[in-house]
Write a protein that binds this DNA or RNA. Structure first.
Lengths: 138, 138
DNA sequence: GAATAAATGAGTAGAATTATCAATAATGGA
DNA sequence: TCCATTATTGATAATTCTACTCATTTATTC
């Protein structure tokens, strides 16, 4: 019997994955589009976006973005860390002190002038975790 | 003599900063807009964006975003860290191993289910650092 | 090969952000 | 206090990135 909801292996998806694996840079969707188009001129930009999402949802690649598409702002300009809830998207400050040794670690890289770092944790916040238990109870 | 290129102190900028300092959430530009509008109904959304940028450029607030507005993709789905150049925006993989103890540290937070973390360093890459020296030489 | 449903291409739509520009207002000096 | 200067604003248009729609195509299983 044919399974429902499975993932097909298409020329386009293969090409996108190949392009991504063939570069050390961390390209944007549009860069990938331009590359894939060289081999497959009729590929659609929608296809690129759709597949990049599908691939990252299946853990084959990863998307580098700050949760939502739009920026968020923080009145505290000093370095501190955040927790981002995967469920509700809430961003919270962590009390954890900034780790000075992290910068030093990276300073070992020759030629790189490290000015700072950013650390975020993601997972489920207490609020959403609570709602989840409610769901199981029903 | 009047200095050229200085930053003025405007009602709008003060209001934006006040709104941002008055919240613990990490709002989007639009949220700030809605709040400022309560006190200042004719404020323009463009003014919000302009000031949020100006303020973060002057280190009075910080913007939480992944460098550029748009997502970037990485063929490597495993957790690893990145270096982002503030000059050219290039993102590079770091050889540094993922720090397991970081997750454990954050796990101490009661009620939070930490699933992962992300660490990025920012600064100047060797390539841009080199160009800079050239500038000084001229 | 046929049936099925996922995926595509082409175009449209929407949301977030930036640019444009005449009008306004903050600043330092007279 | 008034003036000259110019950063900033408000209003709107323009861009950019991404998601959505839907008829058509195509990968998969039988």
């Amino acid at each position: 019997m044919k399974p429902k909801g499975f993932v097909r292996r298409t020329r386009q998806r293969e090409a996108i994955l190949a392009v991504l694996k063939g570069t050390k840079c961390h390209p944007t969707a549009d860069w990938v589009y331009q590359e894939v188009r060289k081999e497959m001129p009729h590929v659609s930009l929608g296809t690129i976006y759709r597949n990049l999402r599908t691939l990252s949802e299946h853990g084959e690649i990863q998307e580098l973005a700050f949760g939502s598409a739009h920026s968020r702002f923080d009145a505290n300009p000093d370095n501190h860390y955040h927790f981002i809830c995967e469920e509700c998207g809430t961003i919270e400050d962590l009390e954890m002190p900034a780790l000075a040794e992290l910068g030093k670690e990276a300073l070992k890289l020759p030629g790189y002038e490290v000015r700072g770092h950013r650390l975020e944790f993601h997972g489920i916040c207490p609020h959403c975790s609570h709602h989840r238990s409610d769901d199981y109870a029903n």
